[in-house]
Design a protein around this nucleic acid. Structure first.
Lengths: 201, 201
DNA sequence: CTTTATCTTGATCAAACATTCAAATACATC
DNA sequence: GATGTATTTGAATGTTTGATCAAGATAAAG
């Protein structure tokens, strides 16, 4: 036996960056070879083919992103956590370097209706984050004495929708202030009627 | 002299559909030849190169989309027009055939940070629609006796952001009811405090 | 009808593409 | 340290790509 010599997560992060920069179709194997430092044969041995590299990179992306989300909500109340995560997304969008683009959003826009398995995997990842967001909204809603409208599920969906919209919108407007104002508005909309936010305009 | 034999708008609409289905990079010249019915030479003669076809198709897309928007707001009050346009977007997203995807949103997600000119053109198109939306919000805000918060500009931006978010979100959730609920929530958020909407939850 | 300018046609091109493979290499186990 | 197995290497494969071009076709002008 023999173990692979490279660090899988590290290689996949480099591949991630390549895909984020150029998208899936435009990123050639040559690009991936250059980005990862591995030779074609090694890449094929480890990931089957180009599509396999994307799937693995997407998997790694989810892990990294889940950790980022966890870091945002650590030690904060539910709404504070969401606010922190939202601000981190704004920061990503505002600095217009290509690494700020969300691999999942980019890939699903590029590959929707083309590759069922990839699309399903991307949908799952988006849903995982939505579930985590949903949990926070459930907790926030429970803090209220009476049932609130809309329910936590719709709030979570709206929050996710807003984030994806923010990302696309960010491609056209480099101004951080505009994105921040939109994020503020999103947060306001999504926390409407929740305890701790009554006094806000 | 001799005039081109094909109908430019019609050819560009076919090219549009091809790009919407597969994205820019994955749509080959062969695909475009098949989709348009023109021969390679004719395409290159008329549009310079593949990139030129995209730019021309995007131009055509804007024209068609502006007409669609105009049709939605014709004969309605400002907010009614926005509502109608939003519903038409929901219908596009809900039927998950690839033609429902917005060419501009798809292209800007694929090509951002890669082709400055294309990105600028796409941004302009997005801004044009935002300007039209802004006009409607200005009119809606003026109907109110006192100054409203937030202002028409932010409302318009938020509306656009919501639509792009809805489109991305739609790639993962075929359920029309969910998209409709999100659109309803978006409309509610964006018309907050505007006359004619006070009584709504 | 002839000329002239333009458009159409489809075969053709070099470059880029994803992928494969056999040989060389290095690890884990015995 | 020898053996067996898995990885690494990088050149080679056949295909597809975006683009070209000379020959043929067609309409307008004289």
């Amino acid at each position: 036996m023999r173990k692979a010599e490279f660090d899988r997560a590290e290689v996949l992060r480099k591949a991630m960056l390549a895909f984020q920069k150029k998208g899936y179709a435009r990123t050639s194997m040559k690009d991936l070879v250059a980005a990862t430092g591995l030779h074609p044969g090694s890449l094929y041995c480890a990931f089957e083919n180009k599509r396999g590299i994307l799937l693995a990179a997407v998997e790694q992306y989810q892990a990294d992103r889940a950790a980022q989300f966890e870091a945002c909500i650590q030690g904060r109340d539910p709404l504070g956590g969401l606010r922190a995560y939202l601000d981190s997304v704004v920061s990503e969008c505002a600095c217009c370097d290509p690494n700020g683009a969300c691999l999942v959003a980019k890939a699903i826009n590029e590959l929707a209706e083309q590759d069922e398995e990839v699309q399903a995997r991307l949908s799952d990842i988006m849903t995982d984050l939505e579930v985590a967001v949903h949990d926070l909204f459930v907790r926030a809603c429970e803090a209220s004495p009476e049932p609130v409208e809309p329910d936590a599920r719709l709030r979570a969906r709206f929050f996710m929708m807003g984030i994806y919209g923010l990302r696309t919108y960010g491609h056209t407007h480099p101004g951080r202030d505009v994105l921040q104002a939109l994020a503020d508005e999103l947060f306001r909309a999504v926390t409407r009627g929740l305890s701790g936010t009554e006094g806000l305009t």
